[in-house]
Design a binder for these strands. Sequence first.
DNA 1: CGCCTATTTGATCTGATTCAAACAATGTGG
DNA 2: CCACATTGTTTGAATCAGATCAAATAGGCG
Lengths: 251, 251
Amino acid sequence: MCEPAELPEYNMLFRKLRSISPLSEDEKHCLLTLPLHVRTIGPDQEIVREGDRPAESCLVVEGFTCRYKFTAEGKRQIFSFHIAGDVPDLQSLHLKVMDHSLMTLTPCKLAFIPHQSLTDLMRRCPRIADVLWRDTLIDAAIFREWMMGIGRRSAETRIAHVLCEVLVKMRAVGLANGHECDLPITQAELGDALGLSTVHVNRSLQELRGAGLIEWRRGALCVLNWEGLKKAGEFDPAYLHLNAEHENAVA
Amino acid sequence: MCEPAELPEYNMLFRKLRSISPLSEDEKHCLLTLPLHVRTIGPDQEIVREGDRPAESCLVVEGFTCRYKFTAEGKRQIFSFHIAGDVPDLQSLHLKVMDHSLMTLTPCKLAFIPHQSLTDLMRRCPRIADVLWRDTLIDAAIFREWMMGIGRRSAETRIAHVLCEVLVKMRAVGLANGHECDLPITQAELGDALGLSTVHVNRSLQELRGAGLIEWRRGALCVLNWEGLKKAGEFDPAYLHLNAEHENAVA
DNA sequence: CGCCTATTTGATCTGATTCAAACAATGTGG
DNA sequence: CCACATTGTTTGAATCAGATCAAATAGGCG
């Protein structure tokens, strides 16, 4: 048996929160009191469904998940991708009924946290409440950035942008080495996130590859020219509001 | 001189918060202790600019405002419209640097609230902190809904949807009579919000008018066929998470 | 090997953009 | 009260980014 602090579920949560706000030792210890129920789940599984009233929130410990919803005509819009450390349905703490669904994209290890435990934690440690609120606000900032992309930017720019975003987020929680990270999602999923058809995602990716900006094979993204990709994606990480003080801070 | 409770600034804030969560008399009185500095401002004026570090948040008392940002190529994306009762930059409480700008669309009466006062209020009255957090989460839900529209719905559907949204929000704070409300924005602004060109907004509006769903002249929107417009916009108000208990609750 | 899923390519079509110009409404100063 | 400027709406025509349809190729895996 190992110490709570070493368990990957606590570790990822800690890394995530530290990436958006400095945490004291006290606050770190506070986090370790959270009861987490870990569950392993396959790819393409629903975690929470639109209309549900969850009594717990889910921390991603391993794998990739996404939020999404379907149009009346059956078209899917993906609202966000989530990586280890994220708590994609934290909002259900204050919005009781889910207005969208949550699913795994890859096999995942998820840790479920009862809302009651979160409420207790935040009462004992108001600073953590602030950090969690901040996290939901950053979520909203990312939605805005995606809106901007979908509404006003070209397919190629959009794709470059989201690739930058994923890499920076992965780096912030220590899941990237250099300019490489896992990205085990399909082009169709990327299309559903960016409001593009699979075919067009494919052709735009070829442009980015052709320009020597990226490689992306077997679920691994490798950015060959970071400055070039940033420029192609009009990417400025300010909207991610990352904690500049900590070691994994972005370039 | 009139009682604080009757001043429109306190009244609109109260109505807004009540529209998303029940408020006790105590909490209502708590709100009245907030120091507000009211200012009147013309149309098309910047309130806060991307990069700013505001020390206060702004409550819309009268008029319409919007959040927005420009692409590298100078295209504007509007992220949200804000009506009386909204506090569009509440988030600056936890995200110090603005990642987008805020401007008036019409002449406005704005009430500025120092962050410190908000922090004090929330310490004294944690329920209000919860309601404000909830408000920022509803904001995010609206972003998701707009993303869905921009990414996956036709121009006509998008427009119908946002018109439904505005009417419901106006009704929730008592600013609509029946199926009519003010909507003093231009078609160009609507286009920037929905990722459409002005020309296409115009033609799509003609469809909606032709179908007998709406009238929209001289800054006033009149919905002639609510059920029809809801259907045309695939509109389901669940994502607005309005407080069903209170009198102005939606049909 | 054979199956299933993901990527890639080609051809065609279309919703929406762009450009350009006319028209309507509102406001302003003389 | 009217000429004129300004801003917003409307119309028409040409064009294009991206969708759709259809089929071929390539990986991964039991």
